[in-house]
Design a binder for these strands. Structure first.
Length: 423
DNA sequence: TCTGGGGTCCTAGGACCC
DNA sequence: TCTGGGGTCCTAGGACCC
């Protein structure tokens, strides 16, 4: 399909199939939008390369990161290995990812979101919730607002986007899932049960393969089946939080508001490797590269963190994580590298015996960079560090010896290479 | 049919403190 | 000398989402 030319309206409908009555008397209106770009990476490729339009396209490198709807119709999905996708669909066009292009497209779409309403909660690069409650008087019905949003994204960014509209986040998300691709679906608050109960349990947010299997084993196949079970039973099946959550969703209770103030709690990076022998030194170097990448991103985001988690995956796909907490938050390469390497060396035997296929690192317990870090402009140039010692002494007197380190100070402030100084 | 890379939240046991 | 209950933090692992 020619996405850049696709006309809004092809998939627009309400549930039930009519436009009005999105507000029930005395009830809440359906004013939460879930907007979700369709096959995002693949759609950007089809937008930028017209010869790919109408063809099965996958974006991938080894595995399928995104598949166009033409490929999805032939059974391709993420994260399927690329060679399997080629077997299913021999005429598939495989495109290497261009993350900068996707980031740029995402920014432009999010600008449109923010011009639609100030209450936007981004969920990922291609997905957000929008609360349009405050807009209904001036901007028309949620259906109109959503239709306009879709039309703007198609016209100004050239991408298809599906919007689900409902009274709660969960229902809006289910609605967008049902309406995909390139659709618009409004769920009438008066008819939520009719909409929700026939759906399979796997559609419930938070039900993955494991939970789905547990529910199926007990004969619960549809949302209606789940709704017929007591909360206590659900808690016994799948645990306290998940059980309560499921019970709430099945009865379309979802009090979560669209939250504009969410910040990431951790920043990490990982790298998968094939099976086969690698020297421990090679792996250490890889880990240090990951530390560098992660701490750089932390400094760019002006965040500091305390908990360093090293993630390992072995030849047999068993996984292990090991975490250590630093006494004080930092975004400096040196202390985080020291902790990560320490963890790594403590498990050298394990790593060499079982073989690694993935190494990862994430830093959690994040705060904003100004918390716990003194903000200073150092009064010397790149090479001249003569003022450093007295500045450090000063800071240590004020914040304690352990709080202030040269590495964190220098890295935090400027990002240039730390001159090697005695401790 | 062998599984990428970025995250979130929950559970559960142990240490430690009051 | 033995003991309760509550709270917080840390760590490991599991499930889930896009």
């Amino acid at each position: 399909m020619d996405h850049s030319a696709s006309i809004v309206g092809t998939g627009e409908r309400t549930w039930p199939a009519r436009c009005g009555a999105v507000v029930v008397a005395g009830g809440e209106s359906a004013s939460i939008l879930h907007a979700d770009l369709d096959s995002f990476y693949a759609a950007v490729e089809q937008r930028d390369r017209p010869e790919l339009r109408g063809k099965p396209v996958i974006v991938g490198g080894g595995i399928v990161l995104a598949a166009s709807y033409e490929a999805k119709r032939r059974g391709v999905y993420t994260p399927m290995p690329e060679h399997r996708a080629r077997r299913l669909c021999p005429d598939v066009v495989v495109v290497p990812p261009r993350f900068e292009a996707y980031t740029e497209a995402s920014h432009r779409v999010f600008e449109i979101f923010h011009e639609t309403t100030p209450v936007v909660e981004g969920m990922s690069i291609d997905e957000a919730f929008l609360d349009v409650r405050g807009l209904l008087r001036t901007a028309g019905s949620p259906f109109d607002i959503a239709a306009r949003l879709r039309s703007r994204v198609a016209g100004e960014v050239g991408l298809p986007i599906t919007v689900g509209v409902a009274r709660t986040k969960f229902l809006a998300k289910v609605a967008s899932g049902v309406a995909k691709p390139d659709g618009l679906l409004v769920v009438d608050p008066a008819r939520e049960t009719e909409f929700l109960h026939p759906l399979p349990v796997g559609k419930l947010w938070g039900v993955g393969p494991i939970t789905e299997r547990k529910l199926h084993e007990r004969g619960l196949v549809t949302v209606a089946d789940v709704a017929a079970v007591t909360e206590e039973h659900l808690v016994a099946m799948v645990g306290r939080a998940a059980g309560r959550h499921l019970h709430g969703l099945a009865h379309h209770r979802d009090p979560r508001r669209v939250d504009t103030g969410r910040r990431r709690g951790s920043i990490g990076s990982q790298q998968a490797m094939g099976r086969g022998p690698k020297s421990f030194e090679t792996l250490e170097a890889l880990l240090l590269g990951i530390v560098d990448r992660v701490t750089r991103r932390m400094r760019n985001a002006d965040r500091v963190g305390r908990t360093v988690t090293v993630r390992l995956r072995f030849d047999d796909f068993q996984r292990a994580t090991r975490a250590r907490s630093l006494p004080h938050p930092t975004a400096a390469t040196e202390p985080i590298a020291a902790v990560a390497l320490g963890v790594f060396r403590d498990h050298r035997d394990l790593i060499e015996r079982r073989g690694l296929t993935l190494v990862g690192l994430s830093v959690g317990n994040l705060r904003s960079g100004s918390e716990g870090v003194e903000q200073l402009v150092l009064p010397f140039g790149r090479k001249d560090t003569s003022g450093l010692d007295s500045t450090l002494d000063d800071l240590r007197r004020r914040f304690g010896q352990s709080v202030v380190t040269r590495a964190s100070l220098v890295h935090q402030r400027s990002g240039f290479e730390v001159p090697k100084l005695p401790d």
